[in-house]
Design a protein around this nucleic acid. Structure first.
Lengths: 218, 218
DNA sequence: AATATATTCTACTGGTTAATGGAATGACGA
DNA sequence: TCGTCATTCCATTAACCAGTAGAATATATT
């Protein structure tokens, strides 16, 4: 019927703009980093292991899709997600990917700390235990990210400082370590180190973005 | 540190496979159609206004990303979404797109029935009114789609039959028409027709997929 | 004035993609 | 066996994309 087609094509094309942003591995990595808080271009480039120029190009795509905002602070330009729902979408996409793609499931298994005792769902009971002090929830990300947002009752010891600051952690209680999310390897490294040193450590694969989505859905 | 990069690249690449699927307008349209229930290749091709061969190619992409399943029924091959969460992702992507992209917002306004009285959020009260019979919720999609799933208390009159079956509808109550979702134009056409014929009609932009997501999030 | 940060422009390579068409093949029903 | 439905293989066009690089530019700090 009449000019229906043109209108429809236009609508789906616009939605596809968002999809395109999430179709590049490096852009996904940048989005995940931005889920941890605002960051400068240089920082993003370093964390994602790409050149500043390429980072700039990817950020441009994100900007043109209105998914990030920029703010100048002195010499640096800081990027942040334009809305929480961007983080939500990232979480939902990688969750669906893990549900559907066996290849991804297998790749993930490689990074899971071998004696596989990672806590999954049990959010409520983890909080309860953390509140009582029965377990220590440990945030091993850089401290700026911890300051931006962290899990309830979490303590911050960045991975880099962990070896020196082991004394701050108790040996008689479980330590639940987390980092940026399921594809960040810092918590896995932390757990490995802790176990070597005789601690009882557990790897929590969720980051703040995943936690937020999960706790909203009850 | 060590082979971290290779692993990370692998992980994000897998997630990007899902993103890629949602980066093509035609594929998005096919996903939306599949949100209405299982459909044959030929039907999908017709509805999306593309050739069977191209449809087949796009469906192949969906299949390789494990987002759809196929089933042979006689001469035809029927496709369906592999999981409800695929529909959820479609809803979340187009919702985010509408939140962020002004171009999409403007394009959407064109299809909104001019005297703009579309009911938004008020799910609870709509159900209540429909239960009491104060309003008629009208599903104008093909009847197979209605049979697969429909909104609570909805009645089915496919758009094609609407003109002949106008007598079934009351003139003293509001009629809330909906179709496949915000980018489907059938409900808008229905509202136009109904108003011309002296009915009090309202366009509900949500389809079953959007309704499901919204009612789950309370 | 010199420096650091970040973007932009141009240009190139290699690879991928959507869409179309022709031809062949498989799978099924009548 | 024939026709229908659907996929596949092949080839093509045109467009796009990631990544890299050189050079130029803008902005702000010192």
């Amino acid at each position: 019927m009449k000019g229906t087609r043109k209108i429809k094509d236009l609508l789906y094309e616009q939605v596809a703009r968002i999809g395109k942003v999430f179709s590049s591995p490096k852009r996904l990595e940048l989005v995940e980093l931005l889920c941890q808080g605002e960051k400068s271009v240089e920082t993003l480039a370093q964390e994602a292991s790409i050149s500043v120029k390429l980072t700039s190009a990817h950020l441009r795509e994100l900007r043109m899709a209105q998914l990030v905002q920029t703010e100048r602070q002195g010499k640096n330009i800081y990027y942040r997600l334009a809305d929480k729902s961007v983080a939500d979408l990232w979480v939902q996409i990688h969750t669906l990917a893990e549900e559907r793609l066996i290849e991804l499931q297998m790749a993930v298994q490689k990074i899971v700390t071998q004696p596989n005792d990672l806590v999954p769902s049990d959010r409520e009971s983890l909080i309860k235990a953390a509140r009582k002090g029965e377990v220590v929830v440990l945030d091993v990300r850089p401290s700026e990210e911890y300051l931006t947002a962290h899990l309830p009752f979490a303590r911050s010891i960045p991975l880099e400082e962990l070896r020196q600051r082991l004394g701050e952690l108790p040996k008689d209680r479980s330590i639940v370590a987390y980092c940026r999310g399921p594809y960040c390897l810092m918590a896995a490294d932390a757990v490995e180190l802790l176990r070597q040193e005789g601690y009882s450590a557990i790897h929590l694969r969720e980051g703040v973005a995943e936690w937020a989505v999960a706790s909203r859905q009850v």
